[in-house]
Amino acid sequence: MDIILLLTHSRDFFTIDNVEAHINKLGYKTLRINTDQYPTQINLDFEIKQHNSPQKTISIGGEEINVKRIKAVWLRRIWSPEMPEDIDPAYSKYCSNEASNNLLNFLHTLNNIFWLDHLEYTNRAENKLYQMEQANKFGIAMPNTLISNNPDKILKFYHQNKGNIITKMQTVLSVSMDGSGQSFRTSKVNAEDLENLSSVQYCPMIFQTEILKKAEYRVVYVDGEFFSGKITTDTLDNASPDIKSNQSVSWEIGSLPQYLCEQISRFMESIELRFGVMDIVETPSGEFQFLEINPVGEWGMLEKELDLPISHAIAKTIVKQIKINEKDTINNASKRQFQH
C-alpha cells in the first residue's frame, strides 16, 4: 500500500491527527515521523552498492519501510533531535547536529515525489525579504517597510511616517525544549526610544508604517483554496500593535476581496508553494495590507473554532497530486514504449 509521509514532532496534535484521518479516509496509509525522535527512536538507512540504486529505509517501532512506497510528503515541522540526557555532553551536541544534517539530506533525496511543500521552497519562503519582494511584484499592498541597521535611514523613515512606525524582528530570541520560542513583540517606536537609536548598528530590525486595524485576518491558502479567519476591533486592542499580545480573542469567518485572492494565487505560484498562512490587516477604510506569509504557519485554531475544512483540503491536495504524478508516469512510460 502506498504511503504518505507526515513530518512533524512528538508534541504535535489536532492538526496532524485531522490530516492523518482524512488521508486514511482517502485510501492512503500514513507514516508519521516525529523528527525530534530521530536518531533516538527512528532509524534511517541509506545503502549504496556499486551499480545498484540506493536502498533507503525508515524504521519506526519495529516496522521497516522502503521509501519506494512513499508517494508524497506533508512537511509540517522539522525539530532538532531530543538527545538522551545520559549522553556525554561533549558528544551530545555533535550527535544532534550530525543527525539533523543527515535527516535533511535523507529527505532531500525524496525528490521524485510530491511535497506539500518542498523543503527547499519552504525554506526560501521563510525569508521575509524574499516574500515581501515577491508579494510586491504582484501588486499586493503592504506597509512601507525598512529593514536596516542604519540609524540615519531609520530616523529618516521615522520622520517620513510622521512618527507612526512600529518595529519587529525576523527571528525568535530563543527556542526552548518544548519548542516554544521567546518572541520580540511588535512595538511602537516612540520619540524617546530614538535617543538610543545608534545602538541599532549592532542588530538590524524591521521598521514599518503603523497600520490601524479594523480586523486582522489569518488566511490559509491550500492549492488555490482560501480559508480565512478574522479578529475584529471588538476584540482587537488597537493600543497594542501586536495582535499576539491580545490574550482573549474570538475568531469569525473572514473573506478577502476577489482581486486580492487573485494576487495571492499568482504570488503563491511564483514562490512555488501550494500551502501558506498569511497575516493580513484590514484598515478602517477597508484596505487590505499584507504583513507576512508563513509557509508552515499555524491554522489549527481556525479549523477548531470555525470548522474550516483545512485538514481536508491538505489531504485532498496531496492525494490529487499523487494521482497526477501516477498518470504522468504512465503517460511517460507509454511514450517511451511508442518511441521504441
Partner: peptide, 8 residues
C-alpha cells in the same frame, strides 16, 4: 490565540 502550538 493560536492553536495548538502558536509559539512554534
Amino acid at each position: 490565540m493560536k492553536y495548538p502550538s502558536d509559539n512554534d
